[in-house]
Design a protein around this nucleic acid. Sequence first.
RNA 1: CGGGGUGUAGCGCAGAUGGUAGCGCGCUUGGUUCGGGACCAAGAGGUCCAGGGUUCAAGUCCCUGCACCCCGACCA
Length: 579
Amino acid sequence: MKLSKYLIPTLKELPADADTLSARLMLRAGLIRKVAAGLYEWLPLGLRVLKKVEQIIREEMDRVNGQEVWLPVLQPRELWDETGRWQVYGKELVRLKDRKDTDFCLAPTAEEVITDLVRREVRSYRELPLLLYQFGTKFRDEIRPRFGVMRAREFYMKDAYSFHADEADLGRMYQDVFEAYNRIFSRCGLAFRPVEAETGAIGGNFSHEFMVLADTGEETIASCEVCGYAANVERAEALPPHVKDEDDMADIEEVDTPDTWTVEDVARLLKVSADKMIKTLFYVADEKPVVALVRGDHELNEAKLQRLLDAKILHKASDEVYQQTAGCDVGYAGPVGLNAVIVADHAVSDVVNGVSGANKKDKHLININVGRDYKPSRYADIRKVQEGDLCPRCQKTFLFHKGIEVGHTFMLGTKYSQAMRAGFLTDKGEKTPFVMGCYGIGVSRIVAAAIEQCHDGNGIIWPEHLAPFDVIVLPLNVSEPALMTTAEKIYHDLKAKGLAVLLDDRDCRAGVKFKDADLLGIPWRVTVGEKKLAVGKAELKKRSSSEIEDVDIDQVTERVSSAKFLGNDISIDENAIIK
RNA sequence: CGGGGUGUAGCGCAGAUGGUAGCGCGCUUGGUUCGGGACCAAGAGGUCCAGGGUUCAAGUCCCUGCACCCCGACCA
């Protein structure tokens, strides 16, 4: 491809609203342009990278016997009503009507449609297991799109769904896909880590996220270097401390705390530490009010609470609920004398002579004690793990990292097949619901994550398997015929070797070409300049290295084509794949 | 949804006290240059986000709306 005729609008200055490094570089290198908040156009160069990622995923999915399909983006409400997700999914689901006023949504994921397909077409255990996947545009009306294509409202995703006769078979497939995912992200040249994860709106009972490690990541991972346990902080188990305070119980007392309601302020006013405070939070779980207690220095983990209560929808209670139940505002609520279902975090039970709101304006209670003054309905792990917490398996201090979620696998079980009455006949002739798994990869997000991980001050440094082109050839002076002829010959020879080559045939100064070549991040650069050409040489440089090598003109093609991917391919353990 | 901010040339921005719409980059043409974003000259390019109002006169002042960005709440 000749650069002079290729749409690569590189930018010296960057658009003001680009908020992360990868977004800035994607705009500057001419990979994408923004149309509206969270909506992007992929230009030729960007699309080439996207297609590279797609092909790697396709190969690995096929390797574990996945079958590619293509499902509609516009999906009828009736299917979403069957699983209840038309209600549960919330505002993120883009809803619209057709000309006949029938409700539809734009697919944020495709469990309903695929389950509908399989329930109509698959009858027997003999046809299982089945792994179907697709690539396609997904829509999620994010509250706040940001970070370029990383959190866009419309994005490109690979989603896969598997159907099984039983849990054991799902377990085998889950393992296969898990390994396929490891290969995919390795081939993409990413430093990543699979972690245990929350299941969120997709549901199911077991799930992993694949996190690309990057400081700009939105997710936080807690990991233990001793036993290898790693989980999203949304999921990570907290170890109950069991260092019950030694103090004797003192008499409960009401104290004045005018205009003081945050944990920090109350603790300062009463001269107690935050871990003596009991935070009292009101929630509504499937329309039933629930009170959650966590220690003042801890944070409630809503996902844990929701899972514990087995609630479809969980949200913070409104001020009215506080008034009705506690008779006061949020900051003055407390568990003593409260007539409600109370769930307490394990750590709360160890607090002796604690402090909480008195359920009266401007009043708190001191010296409150579990058992004597209030009685939670149940204890559970409902807090977020935090800095300093210990691994529940081996009591070693957790490490925390930032990550970008690029893949997510779920063991769904029968959540969707039961709701949609999707089943098959067993060898005994019994109708049984499919056991399902689902597996997603954010294809467009991988592109951004790769840049986030691989760049320098001059631009992108593509991992070789993702690079839009393998080589860029720079004739430094296009008006010099000998130089141009040589450059074009190298260009054609490289192409003949099957490499993707970009020829910078623009009539501009050398500096501009060097700057753009660095910005674009093409792995190999061949420079044809007059001085070196006079002695029959061209310059060869890897984008990832600062070394420049002079190579005989007629050796260039051989050098590049033989070096491509050398030492950069990952070893694949064929035995790990279950056929 | 709450708080804050911004909308002026393709991009980045400037346009006190209302009075002929500007700069840098990019683009076009010509010339000189030519190994890390050259220089000179001449050009093209604007419903100043939209609608309403005040005024002899609005990019500028006043309403209303929209879009976008940031922080928070929320969320595979």
